[in-house]
C-alpha cells in the first residue's frame, strides 16, 4: 500500500504545478496570478521533497515564496493594472502555434522518457551535508562570485529606483 504513496503524491503535485502555472498565464487578475505563482513554487518544493532534496526544497520556499513572491506583489501594487492582457492568444495564429508547440513538445517527450533510472546510489537521507560540502568545497569560487552578483544587483536596484533630490513627486 505504501508503494503507491509516492506516485499519488507526485500526481497531485504535477496537477498543481501544471494547473497553477497555466492559470498564471491565462488569468486576467494579476494579484491572483502572483498567488498562483507562489502555489506553483510550493508544489515544486513538494517535488523536491519527493526527490529527497529537503534542503533545496526549504531554500525554494524561503527564497521563492518568502522573498520573490512578496517582491512581485510589491511590483503589482506599485504599478497600474489595465485589462489588455493578451497579445497572441485566441487569434488567427493559434492553430499554427499549436502545431509548432506539438512539434517541439514531441521530441522533448521522447527524449525525457529515454533516460533510464540509475539504481538508487543515493542514500535517502538528507541532502544538506553533501550540498554544503560541494558548495563550500569545489564550488567555493562560484559561490563568492554569486555573492558579488547579489551585491551588484542590490546596488543596481537601489540606484534604479532612487529619486533624484530635485525631482518633484508625480
Amino acid at each position: 500500500m505504501f508503494d503507491l504513496i509516492e506516485p499519488i503524491v507526485f500526481a497531485i503535485l504535477a496537477v498543481g504545478i501544471v494547473g497553477a502555472a497555466a492559470a498564471v498565464v491565462l488569468i486576467d487578475r494579476i494579484t491572483s496570478a502572483a498567488l498562483l505563482m507562489a502555489f506553483t513554487f510550493l508544489c515544486v518544493a513538494g517535488m523536491f521533497l519527493l526527490l529527497g532534496a529537503e534542503a533545496v526544497a526549504l531554500f525554494q520556499v524561503l527564497i521563492y515564496v518568502g522573498a520573490i513572491t512578496v517582491l512581485i506583489l510589491y511590483g503589482v501594487m506599485f504599478t497600474p493594472q489595465r485589462h489588455r492582457a493578451y497579445a497572441l492568444f485566441f487569434q488567427k495564429q493559434t492553430p499554427l502555434a499549436g502545431v509548432v508547440v506539438a512539434l517541439i513538445a514531441l521530441p522533448v517527450l521522447v527524449f525525457s522518457f529515454s533516460f533510464k533510472d540509475a539504481p538508487d546510489l543515493q542514500p535517502r537521507g538528507g541532502d544538506l551535508i553533501p550540498l554544503a560540502t560541494s558548495l563550500f568545497g569545489d564550488y567555493a569560487f562560484p559561490f563568492e562570485v554569486a555573492s558579488v552578483l547579489l551585491l551588484a544587483a542590490m546596488v543596481g536596484a537601489i540606484v534604479l529606483v532612487r529619486r533624484d533630490e530635485d525631482e518633484e513627486l508625480p
Binding site: L71, A153, G156
Partner: peptide
C-alpha cells in the same frame, strides 16, 4: 536561486 533573486530585484526596479 541567486540569479532568480537578483533578476527579480533588478527587473522590478527597471519596471518601476
Amino acid at each position: 536561486f541567486v540569479i532568480a533573486a537578483a533578476e527579480v530585484a533588478v527587473g522590478l526596479a527597471i519596471v518601476l
